[in-house]
Design a protein around this nucleic acid. Sequence first.
DNA 1: TAGAGGTGGAATTAGGCCTC
DNA 2: GAGGCCTAATTCCACCTCTA
Length: 313
Amino acid sequence: MSASEAKEKIQALSDQINYHNHLYYNQNKSEISDFEFDQLLRSLIDLENQFPEWKQPDSPTQRVGGTITKEFENVVHQYPMLSLGNTYSTEELMEFDARVAKGLEGETYEYFCELKFDGVSISLIYENGMLAKGITRGDGVRGDNVIANVKTIRTLPLKVKATTPEHFEVRGEVFLSKEVFKQLNKEQEDIGEETYANARNTASGTLKMQDSAEVAKRKLDCYLYYLLGEDLDVATHEEAIHQLEKWGFQVSPTYQKCDSIQEVINYIAQWEKKRADLPLETDGVVIKANSLAQQQRLGATAKVPRWAISYKY
DNA sequence: TAGAGGTGGAATTAGGCCTC
DNA sequence: GAGGCCTAATTCCACCTCTA
């Protein structure tokens, strides 16, 4: 095979694999068997080994893993990763609303609600459209760069196709879906090993595994919920979420803008009934002030932002 | 068994508001 | 302005569950 033929073949195989990945993870459909999918991947790996000059940095083979990480690089977060304050009742929500109203005296404001999924927080750094770092929360100031493991998450774009700022950060939650966790425990049972206690801690442990090939087998998934950086051209959290969707990131389909705290309360009540039907575990709702300028004005304490709070079911 | 990530609760501190 | 009260913010620690 000539070099130019190899280049075309590598591109065609990459497109094919990306197409099937997209179908499987975004539409929950599969046109080929797991065996056929593996065959496609193996063909691509063989070709890339023969013609490494045509191997693309965002090749789907990057997701197969294989990197052994002896020690994760410790990285300082550009923007501290704060946790959220918790509420457990509508009374506490009303108090939160009163604090927001006080902080934004005389201004109108709206909220943005989304379900809080039971997973592990992650910060993704993109440089020139390429996924460069995947950092755990750590102590909120510094975290570990687990990029080799993050790259195995097939719903995450390794390269953003659209025009983006040179540098931006996306935050989200890495999780194991109920179905994948069930399957994982079945496999443990089959080989006579102890089953995992819960999906959140299993996802957390998986992210810190040293063998990314093993991580790739666990089928981690990720929802993104926060966009950070300069030159982003967005004025509200809602616009930021739409921007993430346009760039090909998977965001939670449960989000909703609310004009008042009463609408927030209605949203919480609505999802309390429906959340059991979701494919992954949720433990509450995150409520944020929608305007980024107002978020700035409300600021944060040393531990939690004043413009957002979580409601725990 | 040690170390890491994360959660939740108790204790302490800081700051705002009210009364005198 | 001083003192007391209340609430929010912060710190610390115990605990759970995972991987190495």
